[in-house]
């Protein structure tokens, strides 16, 4: 195997790394209403660590949020996040997530299929600039990283108010 072949292989491996190393719901930031003392934050942190796919939980008292970071190669189970906050004795607020997946069109709705998962999100409140761009992604089948605020988490088709999109690969 010559140096050129080896180089090609290494480049291919490098390109593949993000695909295998990036979890699908990679991060979730939940607002925890009512959390106002350090001693109470412990219960929130402990309960959120039981959410499937979660590797780390970082609580921020000042902003009243908890950030869940996914385990390598795993997806955070967003349906469990609100339940975990309630089990800690508090009220879940806004849930912002970062997710990897592909966009598809269904009866004029844009849906986001979360990669390696059965989870599908409906993209809502799309700006006039963002919608054509997402339609391009539909045609090209590009895998991208999306972030936004989630609502109707417990329904079959949760809603994602999209804030940012970043292409990962064609």
């Amino acid at each position: 195997m010559g140096w050129r072949t080896l180089k090609t292989l290494l480049v291919a491996l490098f390109v593949m790394l993000p695909l295998t190393g990036v979890a699908e719901v990679t991060q979730a930031v939940i607002s925890v209403d009512g959390m106002s003392c350090p001693f109470c934050a412990f219960g929130v942190e402990k309960k959120l660590k039981t959410v499937n796919g979660t590797d780390e939980v970082v609580v921020d008292m000042k902003n009243g949020t908890a950030t869940l970071v996914a385990e390598d190669g795993k997806s955070i189970d967003i349906a469990q996040i609100g339940k975990a906050v309630r089990a800690a004795g508090f009220t879940p607020g806004l849930l912002r997530i970062s997710v990897v997946g592909t966009v598809k069109e269904d009866h004029e709705n844009l849906l986001l299929d979360v990669r390696n998962s059965t989870l599908t999100l409906q993209l809502i409140k799309l700006s006039s600039q963002l919608k054509p761009y997402l339609l391009d992604l539909v045609i090209s089948g590009t895998v991208a990283s999306f972030s936004g605020t989630l609502s109707e988490v417990q329904s079959n088709l949760p809603l994602l108010t999209l804030e940012t999109v970043k292409e990962i690969m064609p």
């Binding site: 003392c37 001693f39 109470c40 219960g43 402990k46 309960k47 004795g89």
Partner: peptide, 17 residues
Amino acid sequence: FAAPITFNTALPVAQGE
């Protein structure tokens, strides 16, 4: 168990904790 020193409080205890 949580806030005041000489009596009780209404602050929560997480489920199962």
